[in-house]
């Protein structure tokens, strides 16, 4: 199995703060890789650095064998990466349709694919021509995830999609990710909800203080409660 995304000793500074201290991990093609870690561990910073929204101050990021460390964000996205930020990045003044349309190419929606995506989140079809600003938090997250799915991409990067959402909404999201996983979509997913992480993840990397402190198979971590307790501690236990 080839590594679609590879981070090699990546350092990131935000202003004067040294946030990432040499992050190494890989996202194998066709797998779901979970990135875990307590609050403030550096997960979001890692994803933003991959997207070029923060610049790595040292190290190397490769996508499909190509060095993307210094590429501008739009060029990184065009290589086939969809990114759902922690803040969801919904355009509140645009309609649901327009938000999704932005993720498509010049030819617009592929209607079969759009139907499949909206089948997971039928509510979005009802709100299709409404301003996205009027959606609830859960609906916005569904929109953010749908937007990332509406075109074929090589890699999906999603930052804590279940944060602050009601269990019913989380259920919908899990189903959608499950379907993506079955379609062998490559996904890098940050998730604090260990139940979700365990059910979706093939591989797992755990961060703390801007470093990867554990990397391996999700099945091994799921089976080893002692390791879970040591790596994930209270923050994940609290979510279970």
């Amino acid at each position: 199995m080839t590594d679609l995304l590879k981070l090699d000793a990546v350092h990131t500074h935000i202003g004067h703060y040294h946030i990432l201290h040499g992050v190494d991990f890989v996202v194998p093609e066709g797998e779901v890789t979970m990135l875990l870690g307590r609050n403030g561990a550096g997960k979001t910073t890692t994803l933003r650095t991959i997207m070029g929204l923060w610049r790595a101050s040292a190290g190397r990021i490769a996508f499909a064998g190509q060095d993307i460390t210094a590429l501008p964000t739009p060029d990184i996205a065009r290589l086939g990466i969809a990114y759902v930020p922690e803040s969801m990045g919904i355009f509140t003044q645009l309609t649901v349709r327009e938000n999704m349309l932005l993720a498509t190419g010049a030819s617009g929606f592929d209607s079969a694919r759009l139907d499949r995506v909206l089948a997971y989140f039928p509510i979005l079809r009802q709100k299709w021509n409404d301003a996205a600003g009027g959606l609830s938090g859960g609906q916005k997250q569904m929109l953010a995830v749908s937007r990332a799915m509406v075109e074929e991409r090589r890699l999906l990067i999603v930052d804590e999609p279940t944060k602050g959402l009601a269990p019913a909404v989380i259920g919908h999201l899990i189903e959608a990710f499950q379907a993506l996983k079955e379609a062998r979509t490559t996904i890098l997913l940050v998730e604090q909800n260990f139940h979700m992480a365990r059910s979706l993840g093939d591989g797992v990397a755990v961060m703390d203080d801007g470093r990867i402190v554990h990397a391996g198979r999700m099945a091994d971590l799921a089976a080893d409660e002692e390791l879970q307790a040591r790596l994930l501690g209270l923050s994940l236990a609290a979510h279970q």
Binding site: M51, L53, T73, P74, A77, G89, L102
Partner: peptide, 9 residues
């Protein structure tokens, strides 16, 4: 930022 992350310059 999000417009750029969607691939537009």
């Amino acid at each position: 930022e999000m417009v750029e992350a969607l691939g537009y310059r």
